[in-house]
Design a protein around this nucleic acid. Structure first.
Lengths: 160, 160
DNA sequence: ACAAAATAGACCTTGGGAGTCTATATTACA
DNA sequence: TGTAATATAGACTCCCAAGGTCTATTTTGT
C-alpha cells in the first residue's frame, strides 16, 4: 500500500454511465481547453480534474488507440487532442472508452443472442431508446464542454 | 442440482438494460394479452415467455409491491394486471423492478455524491440524455407491446 | 547521465446481476 | 377434511466487470 489517496469506490449499476466515461470526458474537456498543441501530463490531468491517480493511464491508452488523443513519450511528454475538439463527439468517446453503445444485447447480436428476437414485442422500444441516446450524444462535442481550468480550480474560484 | 434447465447467464454491463426489466416486460405483456381478469400462474408465464424457472418469483413480488400486478394466493392462484394495460408505462416498469432511472449518480444525489457537481461541464449532457430516455419510456405502455400468445407460441406459429 | 513521461500489464477488491431452490402460508376444490 | 397448487419470503451460489492501485520498461528532452 503506497501513499496515494485511496478513492472510495461507488459501484455503478445497470443503465448507468460508468466512471471510465466520466473520467475520459473530464480529461478530454481539459485538453480541449488548452492552447492548441499544448501537451499535458497524465498526473496534471488527474490532479486538475479530480481523477484517481494512475487510473487515467488505462483510459488514455484507449483514447490514443482510438485516435482521439495524441501521446508524447519521454520527458516533457503527455497528451494532446489528436483532432479538433468540435469533431470529437461524446458518442465517440463513449464507444472508444467503453464499448459500442448497446442497450440490450439482442439489438446487437439478434437471434444469435435470443431466439425470440424475431417475435419480440419490446425489441423496437429499446431500439428507439438506443437511437435517441446515440443521436443525442453524437451531437454533443468535447468543445461544447471544454474546461480550461479543470474542475478543481473552478471549484476554488467559486468559493472565492 | 435439480432438474430445471440451467440458463446460460450472459452478463450485462454499463448502460445496459438488465434481465429483470426484460423479464418483467415479458410477463406484463403476456398478462396484458389475456382476457380481462384472467389469472395466470408464475410457471405458465415463465414457460410461455421463456423465462428461467423460479426467476419470476422475485420479479413478480416487486410488481405486486409496486401495484402494477395483483396476486392471488392458493390453488388456481396466480397473477393479473392491477391496472389497465395502457396506463402502465415502461418507465414505471423499469423503476418498479430495478431502481429510479438515473444515468449518473450525481444527477440524483448532486454534490453529496460528487463535490464538483456545481462546476461540472458534462452534467447537463447526461441530464438531457436521461430526460430523453425517461420521456420516451413514459410514453410506451404495456398495452403497446401486449403479447397474448407468448414468445414461445409465436415462434412456433412462425415456423409453421 | 538523469529525470520525467507514456506504455503495458499485473494485481486486488467488491458488489451486483443472474440464477436456483426451499420452507411456509394460503386457498380451491374434491 | 385433506390434498394439491399457489404465491411469498428469503437464503444461497457463482462469477465477473467495474473500479482502483502499482510496477517494470521504454522513450525522450535537457
Amino acid at each position: 500500500m503506497g501513499l496515494a489517496a485511496k478513492h472510495k469506490t461507488e459501484r455503478s449499476s445497470l443503465m448507468n454511465v460508468g466512471r471510465r466515461v466520466d473520467y475520459a470526458v473530464r480529461a478530454l474537456s481539459y485538453l480541449a481547453g488548452q492552447p492548441a498543441g499544448k501537451i499535458v501530463s497524465r498526473v496534471d490531468i488527474e490532479e486538475k480534474q479530480g481523477i484517481p491517480s494512475y487510473y487515467l493511464s488505462k483510459i488514455m491508452k484507449d483514447l490514443v488507440a482510438g485516435g482521439l488523443v495524441r501521446s508524447h513519450i519521454g520527458s516533457k511528454g503527455g497528451f494532446s487532442l489528436a483532432r479538433a475538439a468540435h469533431s470529437i463527439t461524446l458518442k465517440e468517446v463513449y464507444e472508444t472508452v467503453e464499448r459500442p453503445l448497446v442497450l440490450m444485447e439482442c439489438l446487437d447480436k439478434g437471434d444469435r443472442y435470443c431466439s425470440y428476437c424475431g417475435v419480440c414485442s419490446q425489441k423496437s422500444v429499446w431500439e428507439n431508446v438506443q437511437n435517441l441516446v446515440a443521436d443525442y450524444l453524437g451531437k454533443v462535442s468535447i468543445r461544447d464542454i471544454a474546461d480550461p481550468q479543470g474542475l478543481k480550480n473552478r471549484l476554488i474560484s467559486l468559493s472565492a
